[in-house]
Design a protein around this nucleic acid. Structure first.
Lengths: 338, 338
DNA sequence: CTGTTAGCGCATTCAT
DNA sequence: ATGAATGCGCTAACAG
């Protein structure tokens, strides 16, 4: 399909060496006399040679690619992770292949198969819905790293921020602003076999209340599904409880956005009547009216760490993982109470 | 890396046929006796055989993949297109490879190279920043279709909605609501060699005004960069002009979102003081306060059409492209004037 | 219809 | 250090 295909043989000829020598300098393997090396490099440049990845992979058994399965490009959080992964891989000889799970378990599963068929040398999951047991099984036969998700059984290859702590601090911020009745919009995830980030957020919220001498009120904890719409619904549910609250902590920004609309529909002003905080620092959070107080995770670094971990794994080493924590982003959606 | 690799030879043996017969039934090419075919299929199932894509591609010269270069997963518009592409490809033997251009020309360019190295059989650009001339050049040596972008020189492989018409209707909607002074936030694109969608939007806006006996006022047309932040800036610029306006048409939802915040900062209410409309129907548009009137493009269908066109192109045919148009989504961000 | 054979382009022993 | 030879797994003529 492309222009007349030039192969390793063409440059071998042009450089007056054998194809194995060419292969050697290209693969940077064993030593080659400088003069020959340069001749080869020159020929490569002159002929604009592009190695055939299929032949390479077929012969070597390695694809030199790592598959990245993500759920939602477009959000700064995930974008940051991807950027980090790309950066982290840049110095290596591996390149990334992407697939979008679209928050759909089936699609995600298929992506794994596609990547398996493509013989990727490693798999990085960014978030995702796949069960922990499945991931563990995959990790058995191929180097696997999971980012932005906390899995009990795979702690050595999980990169995530301390959601508990961030949620704790966020809740504390509300408490210190004078709020006593703080509602929480959580979510039940599919992959609930293990402790999820959302669940950690819930725990942090509860612990902060307890530590402040307040007791979590089940009537102030409602469940959404992480989608925006469920945030609006959550407001209705909360209002129905008739349990007063002056602040709401939504487990993610999307639900906070929905909650914002729900409050608007009910004529409740933010933050005058109700304070609102989210989690993730999505792009739209800063442009909400009023801008949303939330938590930002160091996504780029997390992505780099993931790439690093993957490289270690492929190298047969046990990755040494850093600790990450979220940063409180204070904006105008919170008012002092009383 | 995977479990003991089973090859075409293994199943040939197990099915008591030659490897070429196996290849034949797998490739669905020439006829094979039913009994043998079934034996092969059985063996394939029993051994859970996965063809080695590298060997396939190396031998056939085709990768059976088409590369999709996109800019922003996460927005419903692009998500819809991707979903459509995937659907459209499903019935074929081609599978998609994705790369995220991240609205960065350099990254996008690199993605093209990566795909070229991967010997993709086709290239689909979803939006993008690459110049028309470059795309034309690429299209010369590999089947290329461009979605969500209007290119003068590649009309036969461009899939896009009629932005002019939609903008015209949207502006008309404002006019019919009694607005006379309608501001517009447009944007200058990098690839401005040709008529862009954003420019079409601007034209539709102007034409609607003219047709209504109003004359477009340059002071009411400001320029952003499609990012949210520039929407807020645009408000400042408009206010500085001291030219009164009762409605704003932002060329995309992101800028509308920014404008919303800018208005809020200036104490201007939406829609009481100023009506606001956007374009694209992003997820957050429906959750703005108040929800944003905007235009939705039939993205899924456009994606399917793109896949269809690609298949035709690969087949050496000239694709027959359908016409698409945007749908006005009326929400609460517009009030009657006077 | 079906089996045999020759590459696809490159990595990799194995000699030298 | 370097060339020759072998094979990765599969497709595509080529013969029967």
């Amino acid at each position: 399909m492309a222009q007349r295909k030039i192969t390793i043989e063409d440059i071998a000829q042009k450089a007056n060496v054998s194809i194995s020598t060419v292969s050697r300098v290209l693969r940077k393997s064993s030593g080659v006399r400088a003069s020959k090396r340069e001749a080869v490099l020159q020929a490569v440049a002159d002929l604009d040679y592009r190695p055939n990845v299929f032949a390479q992979s077929l012969a070597s058994g390695q694809s030199m690619t790592i598959g990245v399965i993500t759920q939602n490009f477009g959000s700064p959080f995930y974008d940051g992770i991807l950027a980090g992964i790309l950066q982290g891989l840049e110095s290596s000889d591996y390149s990334a292949l992407f697939a979008d799970g679209r928050w759909d378990r089936v699609i995600e599963q298929r992506a794994v198969e596609t990547f398996t068929d493509r013989r990727v040398d490693g798999l990085i999951f960014v978030g995702g819905q796949l069960s922990e047991s499945f991931l563990a099984e995959v990790g058995q036969r191929i180097p696997t790293v999971v980012v932005a998700r906390e899995l009990a059984s795979m702690n050595s290859n999980c990169i995530f921020a301390d959601n508990f702590k961030a949620a704790y601090e966020l809740t504390n911020y509300l408490i210190e602003a004078g709020h006593r009745n703080i509602a929480h919009i959580t979510a039940k995830m599919h992959y609930q076999e293990a402790v999820t980030d959302v669940e950690q957020r819930l725990r942090g919220y509860k612990q902060a209340l307890v530590d402040a001498g307040l007791s979590p009120d089940p009537r102030l904890i409602v469940e959404g599904n992480l989608q925006q719409q469920s945030g609006a619904l959550a407001i209705e549910m909360l209002l129905m409880e008739k349990q007063p609250f002056s602040a709401i902590f939504a487990a993610n920004d999307a639900m906070a956005l929905g909650a914002r609309l729900g409050l608007y529909r009910r004529g409740l002003r933010v933050p005058d009547d109700v304070s609102l905080v989210g989690f993730d620092d999505e792009a739209s959070a800063a442009y909400m009216v009023p801008p949303l107080t939330t938590v930002r995770q160091p996504s780029v670094q997390m992505g780099q760490e993931a790439a690093q971990a993957m490289l270690s794994l492929i190298n047969g080493e046990l990755p040494e993982l850093a600790q990450f924590h979220g940063e409180l982003i204070i904006r105008e959606s919170v008012a002092r109470q009383r």
